[in-house]
């Protein structure tokens, strides 16, 4: 986590990261693999968790737009979903690896499941043709995919954590080393 990163550093990390995530997701060999993390879904979540504030909110909209552009039936739904995911992640963002791991894992599980169910509901609500499949069947199909999707997203979350920890790597100053400030765990007071 690096809640103190400057705006330029955040732009330098998130902008290429988002496009890289989108391009990786277009690789057919990856999208057909058993483990195919939805990086564009995870990116705003981890941007929000990592730097908080507006970051998750904005990256969520950009990532959502890319999703809508690439494979969406229209524009807006992916952006809204991404925005709220990033927003929630930004709200729960906190200092410390322990907090990051705990909140990150809960968010990945809950939002992956919720996203799958909500998008399936929209698929039922706004059918593309004349035929509307029963909602029960659509949800059943979504649920059957959930475990693989969840596993993929957990692996994707680890990859993104690796990317962000390298991109936001910051050397500890001598004072921080001496005082052990950098090792403060989330929730603990510096005082």
């Amino acid at each position: 986590m690096n809640l103190d990163a400057t705006i330029w550093r955040r732009i330098a990390v998130y902008l290429p990261g988002l496009f890289l995530a989108a391009f990786i997701q277009t690789l057919s060999s990856l999208s057909r693999a058993l483990i195919s993390p939805d990086l564009l879904f995870l990116f705003p979540l981890f941007a929000g968790l990592w730097t908080g504030g507006y970051d998750g909110f904005v990256t969520g909209m950009v990532a959502g737009f890319l999703r809508d552009y690439m494979a969406g039936r229209g524009y807006g739904v992916g952006m809204l979903a991404g925005m709220f995911i990033g927003l929630i992640a930004g709200l729960v963002a906190n200092e410390g690896w322990q907090q990051y791991a705990l909140r990150g894992s809960i968010l990945v599980v809950v939002t992956t499941w919720l996203d799958e169910m909500i998008m399936s509901f929209l698929r039922w609500l706004l059918p593309m043709g004349d035929f509307r499949a029963p909602l029960g069947l659509i949800w059943k199909s979504a649920l059957s995919h959930s475990p693989a999707k969840l596993l993929s997203n957990i692996i994707g979350a680890m990859v993104l954590t690796g990317y962000l920890s390298i991109a936001f790597y910051r050397r500890k100053s001598k004072r921080e080393k001496d005082d052990g400030i950098g090792d403060v765990k989330g929730g603990e007071s510096l005082a």
């Binding site: 908080g52 807006g76 925005m83 930004g90």
Partner: peptide, 27 residues
């Protein structure tokens, strides 16, 4: 230091704009 979270007004305006975009592009 925790960064400032987005204001409710911003969220509402953006949500309405995106919903409008969604409806427009769904037509």
């Amino acid at each position: 230091m925790k960064r400032r979270v987005p204001r409710v007004m911003v969220i509402v305006i953006v949500t309405v704009a995106l919903l409008a975009l969604f409806i427009l592009t769904a037509l």
